[in-house]
Write a protein that binds this DNA or RNA. Sequence first.
RNA 1: GGACGGGUGGCCUAGCUUGGAUAGGGCAGCGGUCUCCUAAGCCGCAGGUCCCGGGUUCAAAUCCCGGCCCGUCCGCCA
Length: 574
Amino acid sequence: MAHDPWQEVEAEAQRLVAAAEDARKLPRTPPRFEEPPEGMGDLAVPTFAYAKAARKAPPEIARELAGAMPASPWFPKVEAAGGYVNFHINAAKLADATLRAVAERGDDYGFLPPNGKRLLLEHTSVNPTGPLHVGRARNSLIGDALARLLRMGGYEVTTEFLVNDIGRQMVLLAWGVEHVPESELEPPERDRDDYRLTRNYQAANARTEADPTLNRQIESMIYRLEHGDATLTQEIHGIAERILAGIRATLARLDIHFDSFFWESDLILGGKIEPVKERMLALPQVGEEGGSYFIDLAPYGVQGRNTKWFFVRKDGTSLYPTRDIAYHLDKFARCDEAIVVLGENHRLESTQLRIALKLLNARKDVEPVFYSYVSLPEGKMSMRKGVAVFVDDLIDEAVARAHTEVSKRREDLSEDRKRAIAEFVGVGALRYNIARVQAEKKITFRWDEALNFEGDSAPFLQYAHARACGILAKAGTAAKADPSALTQPAEVRLVKVLARLPSVVADCAANRRVHPLAAYAYALAVQFQRFYEDCPVLTADEPVRSARLAVVAATRTALGNALRGLGLAAPEEM
RNA sequence: GGACGGGUGGCCUAGCUUGGAUAGGGCAGCGGUCUCCUAAGCCGCAGGUCCCGGGUUCAAAUCCCGGCCCGUCCGCCA
């Protein structure tokens, strides 16, 4: 475990506790280490749990346990304090282990060894009917950060965007493109196909609402599409491709890119739907109602007004569930684990899908990661009502505000340099604001909060990284570091944070959560800033200078990797 | 009606899976701090019924039960 210093520390403490338990004839209790209050050590083991069996007071047990603890080079001091046994760590040894781990792993410090698993992560998957708006972008931001995090966690990750190019919405879009002339449309907000074509989509929506007879046209188009009409499929595919190009351009600005695009129409053209439909129809759980088919999910824990999950229409065409199942079976053949990022409104649907996959004896399950929607102070975002914030506008605003800040703070820089900094600061602020919060929290979008550049924000983290780089750039080559030269509280505390990165990554990857990594990166930046105030590096005498330089270098690596894991730029100056 | 998610100082948020020592942070507010590696920083002050009520426990923000509030879903739509 040379790559994970903190793991090494806990393993050693665990060994000591077990030995002490045996010596005192206490039952082996897998210790859950806690962090004691400041100044009371580094690891704490509560002894309350032993009290009943031992029939002794916790403080007494703590004293006995502490006394029975074998000597260890890791913990020069183990003491009882109330009902706790507190371990004081050997700071020099931890520094040595941490700096060695960073040296051994190099730029990969914090990356876990490859676990050999192919993980398919689906995210974003918006219907290509218009530009990306802020509500949906949370999906992309969470998905992309998760992909980066899981790569750090040792997975071989493929990100995939499911392009829906066969639904009613897409037919409507195609109809709008064909039947609504440019002369009847307002000028587009931006000169790009996603902005241009979404006007046709909105117009088509408005017209079908006003004139229900149009629905027959639309329905016949849907029918043709679902029966593999190659010409129509091609046409819609082409339109979707143009809008998707716009969406991809927006995402690219956020540094979000996909490894794979899966076109839903390929399921139909590839004949993947029919076999799945047949397999489903053969299930004993299937019911029939007026020529249509469903699975009653009530026995599987689904409750509500209607537990019937229809997958075949009375005209024999497949419904979305069938295609979703076919898609997932296809996914499963291409990976070892499948994750999909979904909005909270898809919770039930996801449960239904997973039950169906199980009934079909699918070889894998799909793991959903849910997030709540982003609303505006004035209420819900809605494309149809035009109450939405486009991601492009959000990015522009973020970058503009960042540019104002950079100009204020760095008059010495060239305009090109300021623009470059403004770009990663603005985009970083946006990304971090989503990444730092638990996905299940609903968010009310406020400009001032989304574009905060101080305190717990991306620029703060980036600034810490830039400062570390600044010191290293001026330092020249350093002598070999002697970890025992690190004795100041600020530098010792920084080392302790540095030691934790691999454990944090492991925890995040296992739980499929990115926000603890954000919290870690912030804690690391905070500790580095304090170190920066308290511990001069370049002007220090040897051997302190070299030791501190090694800590700064380790910080650059660890913080840089944490930043990149969150999808944020790790700048050398700002 | 049912299911699921959230509810932590004025605002935002961590901690909840695995119960433990004064509930961590940030923003906004107030006060300090640039002859010294970038002040997007650092230091300090102030601010809390952890939604409410029961229960379990030596110990509950955390677990259990019952409410309340907010959100989401329960289409032969996708």
